[in-house]
Structures are given as C-alpha cells and as structure tokens.
Design a binder for these strands. Structure first.
Lengths: 310, 310
DNA sequence: TAAAAATACTCCATAGGTATTTTAT
DNA sequence: ATAAAATACCTATGGAGTATTTTTA
C-alpha cells in the first residue's frame, strides 16, 4: 500500500454520527437500535471518528452531549452527506439514461423528414440528455461510429449488403419512401398529376452527388435503368435546396425522396411516379457494443416515431 | 445488520476510478503502479464499482475506454470528491479552532478596559469564529457556564475562595487594577492630585449595587473599613455611567476601578488614592471540561492582552 | 511475443456482533 | 435499581496482495 497512506473517510460512520447527533435527546442506545446495529458498535464508531479527528465530538456525563466542535462538525457532515445523496441520485439518473449526451449523425433527408419529431419526443422524455447533432457525409459517419465519436447515425441505404462486414455496426431500416419526380413548373408533363419514369428517358437529369450521397445517387441511377434508360446527367448536387434551385432554373429534372415535398419552392412541382416506384430506405446505425442506456432510449424513440416497415 | 441494507459508497474506490479515468490514455497497469496498489486489485475495484452501479463504466478491447455513461459518472464523481476534500479541509480548520462560535459573558468593567483589544486581536487571528457577546449579571453567568450556554465569562472577583467548590469551573485572574476616587469637580479635595481614603470617612458614598456587581460592592466596602470607617451609602448603582452621573450631581463620591478613567464625564474628576490602595481583580472563568480548541485559542489571546499578574 | 487485463487464490484488518462491566441517576 | 455507555472478546466480510492465465495487437 501507499506509504504516505491516509485513512479514507468512512461515509457510513459519518451517517451514523449525524443520525446520532441529530437527535434532540442524544441517546446512543436508542440510536443504535434505530440504526439496527448493536450499541457497543455505535459507541466504537463514534470513538473511532473522534480518534481520527483527534478531537472530542461529545462530552460524556456519561450521557452524550455535542461539544462545540461537534456542532460545527455536524453541520459540515450533514452538508457532505447531502452531496453524497445527490451524487447517488444523479448516478442513478445517469444509469437510467436520463442524464448524459448522445452524438447523432444526420443528413439532409432525415432532417427534412422524421428528425424533428424524433428530437421533440426524445427531448420531452429525457430533458437532461444533450443531443449533439452532426451534419456528416456518408463516409465520415462510418469512421466516427467506428472510433466512437458518434453514437448513432442516420444513413441512406441503397441496400443492406456490404455494410455490416465486421459485425461492429448494427443497422435498422426505419423508413421507406418512394422517389418522386421533381419538375420545373413550365415542364410539359407538369400538368399530369402522375408521371411515368420512362417519359423522362431523354430529359436532362440532376443527380444526387455520387461522392457525398452515394446511396441516393445509386438508387436514382438504378431506377432509371430499370425504367429502360441511362439518365442524361447534366449536374450533380448534394443538398436538396441546390437540386430544387437547379430544377427551378429549368436545367433539368430530378428524382428525390418523397420527403422533399415538405419543401415548397417556387417554380418547382412534385409528381407521383406510377408503375414500378423506386423506394428510398433510411436506416439508423450504431455500434453493436455500445450498451449505453441513452442510446437504447433513443433507438426506442426512433422506432416509436418511424412508420412501420413491413 | 439492517435488513433493507444498501452498500455504502466507498470513497477510496471512487478516487481510484477517477484517477484511472482521468488519464488521457487509460492504462490500468500504469494507474495501479502510480496508486501503489497491485494491478489485479485495481481491476477488481473497477469491476466492483460497475457491479454496484449495474452499468459498465469502461469498454474492454481489452484496453479500457470510458463508456458514455462512464464519462457522465466521472464528472459526478469528480464533483463529489471535491466536496469530500472540502469537507476534510473544513473539519481540519474547525479542529484547529478556526471555525465555530464562542459565547462570551461580559460585564461593564471588562467592556470598558481589555475587551476591545481582546476582540480585535482574536477576530484578526480567527476571522471565521463567531464571537457572541452576552451582557450578563454575575449570577446568570455562573448558571450559563454550568449549563454550557456560555463558553467563557469575565467576572469581577472579590477573592478566589468559594468560587470553585465543585471543581467544575476554572478561574484565572487576568488583571488587577487599583480603585480610584471619583469626585465632583466642585469637591473641596478635587484640587489635590492624590487623596487618602480616610479623608472621605464622613462623605456620602455611591456604591456599586450589591445584587448585580457583588464583587465590586464588597471590595469598596472592605476598602473603607480597612481605612477605618463604614461608608455612608446614599445610593447603589450598577452601570458606570449611572455612578458618574450621580457623582456629577454632587450626590456623593464613589470608588471605581481605574479603568473608569477611560470614561470622561463633565463635572467629574478621578483622583489616585495613596496609602493602602484597594485592588480590583478581573478574572476569566470557563468549564474545566470544555476542551474546545476555540476556547483554548481565546484564552491565549486573553493572556496575551492582559497585563501580567504577578 | 509482449503488454494489458482478468482470474484464482491467499492473508488479515476491520466491520460487525455478543456478553459483561462500569458509571451516574 | 436502572439505564446508558464503555470494555472485552469473538466472527466473518471484504480490503489488499501474489502468482498465473487469458486476450489482443
């Protein structure tokens, strides 16, 4: 053991002292009974406390009475025990996932669809948990889940295949939504309430950026191919407002997840696609070995909010 | 032991956890070495902590890394340990008599002589000690020392005989001062710088009250008797200003302790007594069984301030 | 293979308990 | 005589230590 060793304070003994000293008529035997310990033991605990302090806490007549030092010490001890109580309470809260922090990786799609509801519900249930939102690109988020600087990440998935190769991360699909056609208001097909993808085989396309939103990029491409053509890509863009702006300027048409309809832009209309509708999947990912109660609670809120995925 | 028993928190273990968790690169073996405890022991302490909490504080790869809960818990633990430190520090201070309260019984004489200096010096040395001054009559003060509602009392003593019968109180003479003659300015003997007590054998006397200041009353009486006469008492009074007022109105003359000379009153003069000068004793009294460090410090200040008594 | 952490087992100080004596009312 | 506190002595839990094995880079 450490040579410059100093006896650690014994909280239990302190509690007993406080319990005893708080009585109006200090009676060691009664107090011992109430504390469910034998009287001689309480006697010794008090003696030990006095020994360690090097000061008498009580005068003996032989009935006990607090010394003036004892009174001061009592006050301080009461305060400390209050702190201990609070500590234990907070630890308990933290254990229940009610206190702490959660780092969440987000992207355009989720912040335009489910995220507001998720945040609102979670914040209401766990007001003492800090939610740290990080607007990340797809690649970054994977890394940051790996090195644990991110607790949970919303990701657009093209498919669930190769994502889980090391079995470190868990993925869960939380929503599927159809793609919709994004057209300039002046477009010849804008008058139809519904359109077919094949009708746009020769139109210029604005595609989600391959680098930054690969899942959406690939989904769009594959949808066109399944409809029988390769899209004529005139521009790539990452953020929805950018895409909408380009469409409004009649540079081309675009395919975007239905949640884009939450965003109205002058000069741009959305049209439902009939026939084989490509579905856009949103998933949530986290480390399999992260057993944080906060994460657990967050996942439950996400499941509660997300439309059932059958 | 108590059936609804709950394990007390172990402060030492908490300290070790905090020490370990505060390292930038958490290394249990290194930490154990620095804490002067064997590595397996530290391992177990952490495990026990986790067990009691029912939550994992670290992830094992097998290298240790704080979980998000661990981080929250660390913060709380740091705070609590700070409180513990402060508690121990305050206890130490209180033990040294630097924090607390002292009840002091005072009387007219002491507050007119040594008390201001005593209070000033003590307050300077021990600014965190509350001094509670109580203006008490002689009888009250004895009782309050007995029932411990007073820590220390300044008393006028006529002699040291019968005061200590139960060996409960300790008395210590802190000053002796001569009585001086208090005369109206118009008095025929007021022109002499010094007077003899016997010259006032037929004068009307104003005496300290027998009930409230018995020691001074008796001292005055005995002084006169030793000078060869019984004083002609026309009035008794307790407070010095009262006595001075009566003298100024030429109701009579008085004998008062020399400290009265700190008090100037128009129409009143003080004259040194030659020959056998009656000496007025001031003592300080406290319970023999009061080992309060604060009291000890106060007594030392009093001794430091009081003129040597040979 | 080396370094970190965990496991298995010791030992012993002290927390916790029982019977009895001392002290003051 | 009674009740409170102290003393003496006992047991057993958990704090503290040693030797060894397991795990991962």
């Amino acid at each position: 053991m450490n040579p410059e060793y100093r006896k650690p304070i014994n909280i239990e003994r302190l509690k007993r002292f406080v319990f005893l000293a708080e009585q109006e008529d200090i009676n060691l035997s009664h107090a011992a009974k109430e504390l469910h310990i034998p009287q001689p033991y309480l006697t010794r605990q008090i003696q030990q406390l006095e020994e360690e302090l090097g000061v008498e806490l009580f005068v003996r007549n032989p009935r006990l009475e607090l010394t003036s030092y004892g009174k001061v010490f009592l006050k301080q001890a009461q305060h400390l025990l209050g702190q201990v109580e609070q500590f234990q309470h907070l630890s308990q809260q933290a254990k229940q996932g009610e206190i702490g922090r959660l780092s969440i990786g987000i992207n355009t799609s989720i912040s335009n669809s489910l995220l507001p509801d998720i945040l609102r519900v979670f914040r209401q249930k766990f007001p003492q948990v800090d939610l740290v939102l990080q607007e990340l690109l797809c690649k970054e988020s994977r890394q940051r889940l790996q090195n644990r600087t991110l607790d949970v990440d919303f990701e657009n998935l093209y498919n669930l295949q190769d994502v889980d190769k090391h079995h470190v991360l868990t993925y869960e699909v939380i929503s599927k939504e159809p793609l919709v056609m994004v057209l300039p208001q002046q477009h010849s097909l804008a008058n139809n309430p519904q359109v077919q993808l094949a009708d746009f085989a020769n139109e210029p396309f604005i595609l989600p950026c391959r680098e930054t939103v690969p899942a959406l990029h690939q989904l769009t491409r594959m949808a066109c191919i399944e409809a029988g053509f390769h899209p004529n890509v005139v521009q790539e863009a990452t953020w929805m407002p950018t895409v909408l702006g380009l469409v409004a300027s009649e540079m081309g048409v675009a395919l975007l997840p239905a949640n884009v309809m939450n965003l109205q832009r002058t000069g741009v209309v959305y049209r439902e696609i009939i026939g084989k509708v490509p579905m856009f999947q949103m998933a949530i990912a986290w480390r399999r070995d992260n057993h944080s109660k906060i994460l657990f609670n967050f996942l439950n809120v996400v499941r509660e909010i997300s439309p059932g995925v059958y």
